[in-house]
């Protein structure tokens, strides 16, 4: 098991965004998380990547505990040093790419492996070039993010996340900020990663993609997991009324 999340609760003020969510990801799994906006699916991802702190629950990566719940029912994070170690297990691709605009494409990818993981420069650069080739961007290594299209930027962002060799890669609506004609190139890359058995969790609105690529689909609404299972099951034969309604709205 790569990621285990149990009994996750998260509120913003009076608004309960995650209501006791449990969620596991196995090695090699590709999980799609779908649901209406405000359902809590992005918050779930941000909690999993420690960008938000949970109020209660447990989070464990690769068997190493990152968050436990005290006897009073409050979340307790492990010390900073341990948390930093655990952070190395995952990568995150943002909706808005969040590339560093002042770094070239290559430096965006190599800087963290060199300066955070302290790996040898030459090795990192060679790997980065390999990743760029995979992203079909090997000729843009020296370009700056502002010179790239949205789809190209997102592919660089994926390469940047992969360069740290994570065990699991999270995608937070990776194509939502893109023009429709550019989503294809990003989805193609994710599909390719799925074929290579990369463990991934993708929060997405792209239903056909979720259906075609993932091993498991999770439908979230109002802070709870309403339904989950095989994509053909969830899409083809949804059990819950809310899922049916959501998918119907989507098809129109």
């Amino acid at each position: 098991m790569i990621l285990e999340m149990n009994g996750i609760k998260k509120s913003f003020g009076d608004l309960e965004v995650l209501k006791d969510i449990s969620f596991n990801v196995d090695s090699g799994e590709v999980v799609s998380v779908i649901g209406p906006s405000g359902s809590g699916k992005s918050t779930l991802l941000r909690c999993a990547t420690f960008l938000e702190t949970v109020d209660a629950g447990q989070i464990t990566y690769m068997g190493r505990s990152a968050v436990t719940t005290t006897s009073e029912g409050r979340a307790h994070y492990v010390p900073h040093a341990e948390l930093n170690q655990i952070k190395r297990y995952f990568g995150l691709v943002f909706q808005q790419f969040n590339l560093f605009p002042h770094y070239s494409v290559l430096k965006n990818i190599t800087d963290a492996p060199i300066h955070v993981q302290k790996r040898p420069k030459d090795e990192v650069r060679a790997e980065a070039m390999e990743l760029l080739r995979k992203m079909n961007l090997e000729n843009r290594a020296d370009a700056y993010p502002c010179q790239l299209s949205g789809g190209q930027q997102q592919r660089v962002a994926i390469a940047r996340a992969l360069a740290l060799k994570p065990e699991i890669l999270f995608f937070d609506e990776p194509t939502s900020a893109l023009d429709p004609e550019l989503t294809g190139e990003v989805l193609k890359v994710i599909r390719q990663l799925a074929e290579e058995k990369m463990t991934m969790v993708v929060v997405t609105h792209e239903m056909p993609f979720a259906r075609a690529v993932s091993n498991r689909v999770i439908f979230m609404d109002k802070g709870v997991i309403v339904e989950q299972g095989d994509p053909e099951e969830v899409f083809g034969n949804p059990k819950q009324e809310r899922t049916v309604q959501f998918l119907r709205n989507y098809q129109r």
């Binding site: 990547t49 960008l51 930093n84 952070k87 990568g91 969040n98 955070v116 940047r160 996340a161």
Partner: peptide
């Protein structure tokens, strides 16, 4: 943008870095 801090955090950069 907040996203720059978040990207840096996820990539493991320290606060100083």
């Amino acid at each position: 943008p907040q996203g720059q801090y978040e990207a840096a955090e996820v990539l493991g950069y320290s606060k100083t870095q």
